[in-house]
Each structure stands twice: as structure tokens, then as C-alpha cells.
């Protein structure tokens, strides 16, 4: 139990660090740009249209969209984008672990 607690504490500390340094915001911006660039957004939008037509324009909720889109969105991220992002996260972690 104390180990689980320690893990959670550590994650919280890292997230805190990410936000404080502004790295999280930078990473988000980077990801956003990359996803638009590679057409991820357009693909998801097409998928959205299907979902919306299926459910009906008036009845669509944010929850419906999130449930339908998130798995697809995760899968559609290109490997190159994923690698680049992970690399930046690792570098961040290494810098802050060595402190």
C-alpha cells in the first residue's frame, strides 16, 4: 500500500513539474500542430460526421463523441508523431530525475 502511495505521489510530482515548467503546454501545442499537419484531424472529422449522422444532429452529446472518437484518435496518431513526443517526454524525465 505504501508503495502504491509512493508511486502515485511520484506521478503527481512529475505532472506538477510538467505543468510548472510549461513543458506540458509546449508538448500539447507540438502534438496539436503535428496532428493537424498529418491529417489526423481531417480523418477524425470524417469519422465524426458518420457518428453524428448516426445519432442525429440534435441528440449528439459530448460523451457520445468522446466515446466514439477517443479510441479512434489514439489509433490514428502516426508513429513518427508518437516517437517524437515520447522522446521529448523521456528527455524531460531524464533531466528532472537527475536533479
Amino acid at each position: 500500500v505504501s508503495k502504491m502511495n509512493k508511486d502515485a505521489q511520484m506521478r503527481a510530482a512529475i505532472n506538477q513539474k510538467l505543468i510548472e515548467t510549461g513543458e506540458r503546454e509546449r508538448l500539447k501545442e507540438l502534438l496539436r500542430a503535428k496532428l493537424i499537419e498529418c491529417g489526423w484531424k481531417d480523418q477524425l472529422k470524417a469519422h465524426c460526421k458518420e457518428v453524428i449522422k448516426e445519432k442525429g444532429l440534435e441528440h449528439v452529446t459530448v460523451d457520445d463523441l468522446v466515446a466514439e472518437i477517443t479510441p479512434k484518435g489514439r489509433a490514428l496518431v502516426p508513429d513518427s508523431v508518437k516517437k517524437e513526443l515520447l522522446q521529448r517526454i523521456r528527455t524531460f524525465l531524464a533531466q528532472h530525475a537527475s536533479l
Binding site: R11, L31, I89
Partner: peptide
């Protein structure tokens, strides 16, 4: 452990993006 945390952060970021996109569409 570091790698696992990195993956988590990445998944978090992607999810954020998806969520942002969903709000936008909605």
C-alpha cells in the same frame, strides 16, 4: 518505470487532444 510514466504522459496528451477535438466538434 520511467518509460511507463512517459507512455502515460503521452497517452494523457493524446487524450487531451482528442477531448479538445471532441469539444470543438460538439
Amino acid at each position: 518505470k520511467l518509460e511507463a510514466i512517459a507512455q502515460e504522459i503521452y497517452a494523457d496528451l493524446v487524450e487531451d487532444s482528442c477531448l479538445g477535438f471532441c469539444f470543438e466538434v460538439h
